[in-house]
């Protein structure tokens, strides 16, 4: 029971990150009816930008080192015990300026990338078949992954966590539970962002415009909604949330090209939940997170990588439009 709880909590923490990434795919789909196959690679670029601005640049000699080092902190740090919660807090506090700078630059950089993709690859195809736009995102996979290997030649590297990372131990029902602080905060952050954006899309004018554009592009246009701006907003929203998710993932697993492949499992999760349903995607992200943790527990680490794919195949066979997806009505 204790072990089950431990794995379930791990699963929920992974699931929240999945939900945050899935948000980007759903937002783009809801606004533009394009399924972005390259979202994982956009996230990968976000993670590498975070790495560049939070690690590479501050360590360059000509750049301010962006460390928060007042005397009391240096003193406290020298006294703190290795691997104690205080040491984790102090290490985080010291790197806080780097983290903030890196995250902001990553969000800005990813948003610019998204604007460029939207403006030069998606907008010229406005009004043409969805197939063409989707295949363009498939082409983007190679372009982004090639560009990554050209710019960042190094191997996997580690980056600072967004939150202090003490190891938390506590007991529930007489069994020990072990959680990393940063993972817990990341989960909270992901959930808050997810909820905030879903509410924003439901309530705000831009959100309503986005829903209108997804319903019928030409009618929305004629009602005075700037459809291209809606599209650009959706892409920027996806890239910005993707950059945060990328930073979280990069801190958890290290920056590596594998982040791009991660996007495909999120795509599977999105289809499992239903392409146009935030609630469905949230449920399936959490479910896949827990399933992965259980697979790791019962079958071994290798099986984790195919869990989302098996899950999506089963769900699609039973419910073709995902758990809560809206059935598309076709004109014959």
């Amino acid at each position: 029971m204790g072990q089950f709880l431990q794995f379930a909590i791990n699963g929920l923490m992974a699931g929240a990150i999945y939900a945050l990434i899935a948000l980007g795919i759903v937002a783009i789909y809801k606004a533009t009816r394009v399924v972005n196959f390259a979202h994982g690679y956009v996230i990968m670029i976000g993670a590498y930008l975070y790495y560049t601005f939070a690690v590479i640049l501050p360590s360059a000699p000509w750049f301010p080192d962006l460390l928060f080092q007042p005397d009391w902190l240096v003193e406290a740090k020298s006294k703190a015990q290795m691997f104690s919660p205080e040491a984790a807090w102090l290490a985080w506090l010291e790197k806080l300026p780097r983290i903030i700078f890196g995250l902001i630059c990553a969000i800005i950089g990813s948003s610019i990338l998204a604007r460029l993709i939207e403006r030069f690859l998606m907008r010229p195809l406005l009004g043409q078949s969805n197939f063409a736009m989707i295949m363009i995102t498939v082409g983007l996979i190679s372009v982004l992954s090639g560009a990554k290997s050209m710019i960042w030649t190094g191997d996997a590297a580690s980056v600072p966590h967004l939150a202090p990372n003490p190891a938390l131990r506590f007991e529930v029902f007489g069994s020990k539970i072990f959680i990393f602080g940063a993972n817990l905060v990341s989960m909270g952050l992901a959930l808050v962002i997810f909820a905030a954006i879903v509410i924003w899309l439901r309530r705000s004018t831009s959100g309503v415009a986005m829903r209108a554009a997804s319903e019928d592009q030409s009618t929305a246009y004629s009602m005075g909604i700037s459809v291209p701006r809606v599209f650009a907003n959706a892409w920027v929203l996806a890239a910005a949330t993707g950059a945060i998710a990328g930073a979280i993932l990069a801190a958890r697993d290290g920056v590596s090209p594998a982040l791009g492949l991660f996007g495909f499992s999120v795509l599977a999760i999105v289809l499992m939940g239903g392409l146009d349903s935030f609630v469905g995607v949230f449920i399936s992200a959490m479910a896949v997170g827990i399933l992965e943790a259980l697979a790791q527990w019962q079958l071994g680490g290798d099986w984790v990588e195919i869990t989302p794919y098996v899950a999506v195949l089963i769900v699609i066979l039973i419910r073709p439009h995902g758990l809560l997806g809206q059935k598309e009505i076709e004109r014959i």
Binding site: G139, V143, G146, S149, M150
Partner: peptide, 24 residues
């Protein structure tokens, strides 16, 4: 030689994008 593999990947993606946009 180091540049070649990524460049190949980029060209490969650009081929897909270019053909869809200009010669579907």
């Amino acid at each position: 030689a180091q540049f070649r593999a990524p460049l190949q990947e980029i060209i490969f993606g650009l081929l897909i994008i270019g053909f869809i946009m200009f010669e579907p």
